[in-house]
Design a protein around this nucleic acid. Sequence first.
DNA 1: GTTAGCACTCCCCTTTAATGAGTGCTAACA
DNA 2: TGTTAGCACTCATTAAAGGGGAGTGCTAAC
Lengths: 349, 349
Amino acid sequence: MELDERKKKILQAVIRNYLETGEPVGSRTISRYTDLNLSSATIRNEMADLEEMGYILQPHTSAGRIPSDKGYRLYVDTMMEEKEREVIEMKDMLVQRQDKMETLLKQVARVLAQNTQYATLISAPQAKRSKLKFLQLSRVDERQLLAVIVIEGNVIKNNILPVEEDLEDETILKLNILLNTHLNGLTIDEISLGMIAAMKQQAGIHSSIVSGVIDAVAEAIRAEEDLEIYTSGTNNIFRYPELADQQKASELINTFEEKQLLGELLQEAYTEGENTGIQVYIGAETPVQSMKDCSVVTAAYELGGGMRGTIGIVGPKRMDYDKVVGTLRTIQTQLDELYRKDEQAERTE
Amino acid sequence: MELDERKKKILQAVIRNYLETGEPVGSRTISRYTDLNLSSATIRNEMADLEEMGYILQPHTSAGRIPSDKGYRLYVDTMMEEKEREVIEMKDMLVQRQDKMETLLKQVARVLAQNTQYATLISAPQAKRSKLKFLQLSRVDERQLLAVIVIEGNVIKNNILPVEEDLEDETILKLNILLNTHLNGLTIDEISLGMIAAMKQQAGIHSSIVSGVIDAVAEAIRAEEDLEIYTSGTNNIFRYPELADQQKASELINTFEEKQLLGELLQEAYTEGENTGIQVYIGAETPVQSMKDCSVVTAAYELGGGMRGTIGIVGPKRMDYDKVVGTLRTIQTQLDELYRKDEQAERTE
DNA sequence: GTTAGCACTCCCCTTTAATGAGTGCTAACA
DNA sequence: TGTTAGCACTCATTAAAGGGGAGTGCTAAC
């Protein structure tokens, strides 16, 4: 059987209507609210065909039809009309220069949740793929060194390192120069064992203690907890009856709390959606088990210089895909612009 | 009417039973499962009295009795038998020295949630009341300074400061010495305007730029976001039918997500529970509106040196108070011991 | 003061019936 | 051949009715 133009129109009408109401939609509704000028009986015939083809299904005999996953998929792939959305608060918010990445991301998540009425999550750019900008050791007291690592994008990581023997100021100074000359501009992933060995050699006479410190620094850099995820609007799931029953709600909320569970999702989104950067997972398509009754839309964002992360929106399968995709697209551009502005500001100042 | 010993015993039995089952408890149950050797009829008479006195109430005629807030209050104040609870995983967890406060607190929240099956929250010690241990400026690039502030307990705060003019290394060095000699050992709250003025004066010739930097540092220290709260086990609320309906669950989850809403609670707990450090809020007693159907137990903890924060446990009013209070007490001591151990380690090493 | 007994209340569950939205199918129509 | 009107049928949903049971309050006897 072929999916002709009329069938497509009917399918689209079914989906549009279902997205709005959340109720199974019947033939009479379609017949009245489309410009097809067909009787409900004709629509019924067509709907029977669409059901046979797997695009829609009936919750039970004598109910209207609801879109199947396959139906949603077709809609998202070929029928969606992305709306360029104004994200109102976003503009104001992003204009003020945020020096703390954490604050920025939390705010994006929140604004997005308020705008879409879905649950949102956002992953911080992976520090491991960003370049080291600055690295510094300093003495806190006799037995402790503070290692500060600044990464591109002004992300700062700290570690307190225990040392066994008191180091002289001069030694620390030398170490700082040594570390900076060797490691500056590299990404964390690029730091190799050979490099560390080389540094140890150059450290020369102090080597016994110093090599210990170098090891500690290297380890500290590597060990950086790397998967920071911020979420917002979790309780929006209660807006959608199909997700709000205890079983599902509990599982979902748990997933949002145990953020590691979300890691996989964002990871996949990160590698998958290369082309447009936006990826839609419908129902069982999502890699996270607890979201099998949800749809998830993810968008990769870039803050320049390899600082890439992922934004995700989680809602019911009858999500307003047009709006969500549009909004994400807007955010993408705005984040991008934000970075550009920063870049320029830094250069022209 | 007087609350004699027998009435107390019956009240206690009602509460104990209700805590376990969550069902209204009838006179026959009490008659059978207590050592009072009284018939159900007698119990009924006593229960009628207890109801009149306001300690228990009936959901409807011909149902058993459930404790009122007043009943719970009496129980908590006079009848509770704190169980010294082994917090199993806790021991192992805390033994390994955690240098990142954040990780430690998150873990405490999680373990506590798993142990009690309630929702938990924990506030980080207020940085403003802790002493500055170490302060350092360093140049990231021509236009940006990095300010690192180490507070007692090895809590580290960072800020990137923009500067208008390039500073010489020597100037930065001097600034560091200046800042450290003046501010070291003070709490953030203690830093006064006079002190800042004094520093500016000592800075001497450089004052034009330098005073700007000093202002920026002072502001950065003060502006530190100060209310960090970690939560865990939010979805435990679904275990208790009286909290699990959509309306309430949604509100509660929202409260846990918008952590500022919790601030008030922990703040009050911080000042209130001075004596034992443990405070119980039953129902409407809690300062947070959305928790009016919950009970909240808070405990102040101390990590030494003024590093004080609050732990909270949120559950249904029929919470296992004995267990919760016991567990919190255990955690209190363990956190205390942890700090002592650290102190000793630092001294004896 | 305690207890047995009994009538009474009221929640909860199941059954039954009515309603109504929506379908599939057939036959007639253009 | 495609479209439509008509009709019997299905089934979720809701309301009403009825039985069962847990628990009470009260009275009278011990």
